[in-house]
Design a binder for these strands. Sequence first.
RNA 1: CGGGAUGUAGCGCAGCCCGGUAGCGUACACGUCUGGGGGGCGUGUGGUCGCAGGUUCAAAUCCUGUCAUCCCGACCA
Length: 488
Amino acid sequence: MEKLPTRQENYAEWYNELVLRADLAEHSQVRGCMVIKPYGYAIWENMKAELDFQFKETGHVNAYFPLFIPKSYLAKEAKHVDGFAKECAVVTHYRLKIDEHGELVTDPEAKLEEELIVRPTSETIIWNSYKNWISSYRDLPILINQWANVVRWEMRTRLFLRTTEFLWQEGHTAHATAEEAIAEAEKMLGVYTQFVQDFMAIPVVQGRKSPAERFAGAEETYCIEAMMQDGKALQAGTSHFLGQNFAKAFEVKYMNKENKQEYVWATSWGVSTRLMGALIMTHADDKGLVIPPKIAPWQVVLVPIFKNQEQLSQIMVFVDELAKTLKQKGIRLKIDADDHKTPGWKFSEYEMKGVPIRLAVGMRDMENKTIEIVRRDTGEKQSLAQADILASIEKYLVEIQENMLVVAQNRLRENTIKVDNLQDFVQGLDNGKFLLAHWDGTEATEEKIKEMTKATIRCVPLNNPLEDGVCILTGKPSTQRVLFARAY
RNA sequence: CGGGAUGUAGCGCAGCCCGGUAGCGUACACGUCUGGGGGGCGUGUGGUCGCAGGUUCAAAUCCUGUCAUCCCGACCA
């Protein structure tokens, strides 16, 4: 098989090819939709399991709401409609029939009284339920998460980064006070940050979106932004303080302790299969994926090297014993004893798939009681005594996880720069930097900068130091720097 | 929705200009030699040439229509 295009040659093609070659996903026949293949789905499942655990640890429960949203619900929150109307799939009929030419056609008789929207997000359908669930402060808070698929009819799609249908989780909470809701939105941003850094080894910048970049219907949008290897930003997760916008749209009030009716305060927060894109573009190299041990479907792959079944049997005596030990330790091992692929082919294959540790054992090793171990992240290869292998694997799994984060953190730090004029700004962008620059705080300036440079305000970082300066475009005064980058 | 391109085996492509038996690479199956970094040799399976019309003795090839996909724009939490 041909080599992967390098990141340097063509970053976009490298990404696309890698997704296909690593067997994560493929384009389906359906426009803009992908098939997530078992290896890709296994990574998603590992991410999902950990996130689900964290949500429950922080007091949330799972529920499930309908895929279809009556059109009238979506219309209730004005900004929300604005944000999503242009990318909705609409169900208009409920039956097909065979016509006079023998063709399967939509039955015009079966038109829906009210059209149904395939959910682009679930605020409206969920708040329509919350209306019936909430009457007293004693009913609050409601802390619900749902794992679901959503559909957004995007013009241009890319595997994992932007697909018509995608998988995600969406948390929707209801609170008695603004303070509590804001605290919830911030808490979940923290959960995302910790998950992404500790499990996916992806460092992020936490911040608030500018008003223009806010979620449709939110008072405040918090986000985590990650840096891809080409210097572009990828929004890895968002958490929104929705104020009382949805409560007002759906008439959701509660009786407080003073016997007064008040509107409920809301949050929503989500991460999606887009995180798979972040994983790939943060860690993968020109040989393929590199997956952090904590979410790798296989943490270790073992390739026995043999000329015939008899040799394989001898090797497998040792391998079976090792497999038993690793299983006891909870280490995920794949043994590839397939005899119609060569060892060289397998080495390349598992590098493409990003398995953190590779072991190889042949007859030479059996005679010497040794085993070859190779780290995927650094490529470091050594021959160890078989007796020492368990300790080395355990040590490597920890080291690889840590090292991957450190490498990514260094990249983020080294490529985030302060700029004070437009020339440096543009030059920085072309060199793949994240830019901290002064901005006059107006939407007009933000828009102008986007037009000129394709860069957007990714966020106003949390705990941003205040500092007097002047806007790089207009020269008007500014009190803090904000983070600009080109984004996916 | 504007501009450009492409539809031929699972995948990647040639053939089309100049009409005449459907080709190559890869994958797959079998055999054999191999096996410590994407193996060699041999044999074989697999195609309504996107779809619908038309011209012709004859269409992957020429003509008309149509559908789909991709790229560049517009659009995009």
